[in-house]
């Protein structure tokens, strides 16, 4: 079942069309990576899902219920972590979670149990001071804690890792992996390694439209790579190889590496056979011969180019 359905939404700010006829859906219990450049419209899309922004056209449903701009009932299913979560700086984390719990109508006992549990999950148990003195990373963790407080079925995180150091990033990603199974996670990012680390589905947003969507293996299979990497131990061998390969009709383009070469081919299998036979005929022994795996980064560059 799909927890979130977006159908043909569009949104303009003035003359600037940010989202253009966007449709996608998020199945239950997945970690959904929402990728796009800065300004691609990721935050705008998320805010529309939360009813914080009004879509010009189209329909959004959360667990089958339509999202209404302004006061939306569907927010009771959603936990939201904004890109830069802002809290009341004069409160302590526990006081803040108590406020959040009271607002959502949880009873005092549940709030107590749940907030203790979440505070230790996000590693803030020793930070019993006012939020005003928190670092960015600590605020991000508190952000996750407040988003998970009412056990939402959908957790939406807007670039949760963008501003963090590598350690903080890893910790946030670990927390997101932990909640998988209980909660569906949608998170936007432009850090592709984060996506490869934890997401099982991705969607790439480019100029207001979905440029790519599906599970990671699916996407990689669709965009099978065409590149062959050949590396040599000494430069002379490389020069020699370059001379013999020059003019081969299967090679589209050539990219030079330090002691190697990347061959972009029209047909990877045929090209590989030709290269192998040429190598053996000329008695050249490469250090490495590899079919380059398509990386998300390459795909991303290809799409957004």
């Amino acid at each position: 079942m799909n927890i979130l359905n977006i159908e043909k939404i569009s949104k303009s700010f003035g003359k600037n069309k940010v989202i253009n006829d966007l449709s996608f859906s998020v199945p239950e219990n997945s970690i959904f990576g929402f990728i796009g450049q800065n300004g691609a419209g990721k935050t705008t899309t998320m805010k529309m899902v939360l009813g914080l922004l009004k879509a010009d056209s189209g329909k959004i449903t959360v667990l089958g219920e339509p999202v209404v701009y302004g006061q939306t009932k569907t927010n009771k299913y959603i936990g939201y972590l904004p890109d830069v979560p802002e809290f009341y700086s004069y409160m302590t984390p526990k006081e803040y979670l108590k406020l959040c719990g009271d607002i959502t109508g949880m009873d005092d006992k549940t709030i107590k149990i749940k907030s203790d549990e979440l505070i230790s999950l996000v590693g803030l148990d020793k930070a019993n001071k006012r939020i005003g003195g928190f670092s960015r990373g600590m605020k991000q963790r508190l952000g996750i804690a407040q988003a998970l407080l009412n056990e939402p079925q959908l957790l939406i995180c807007d670039e949760p890792t963008s501003a963090l150091d590598p350690k903080g990033r890893k910790e946030i990603l670990d927390i997101l992996s932990t909640v998988k199974g209980k909660t569906t996670v949608v998170f936007s990012t432009h850090i592709l390694s984060d996506v490869e680390r934890i997401c099982d589905r991705v969607a790439v947003l480019h100029s207001g439209k979905l440029a790519l969507a599906g599970t990671l293996p699916e996407i990689k299979a669709q965009h099978k790579n065409d590149s062959l990497i050949v590396e040599f131990a000494v430069l002379e061998e490389l020069e020699c190889f370059k001379a013999i390969i020059n003019g081969c009709s299967l090679i589209k383009a050539v990219e030079e590496l330090n002691k190697g070469i990347i061959l972009h081919t029209y047909n990877i299998l045929e090209a590989e056979a030709v290269v192998l036979s040429l190598l053996s005929k000329n008695n050249l022994l490469p250090l490495k011969l590899e079919v380059a795996e398509p990386t998300l980064e390459n795909l991303f560059m290809e799409i957004t180019a």
């Binding site: 939201y80 952000g143 407040q146 009412n150």
Partner: peptide, 11 residues
């Protein structure tokens, strides 16, 4: 400060 975003999305 944007402090209402969390609170309002909590309902």
């Amino acid at each position: 400060k944007g402090t209402l975003i969390n609170i309002l999305t909590k309902g």
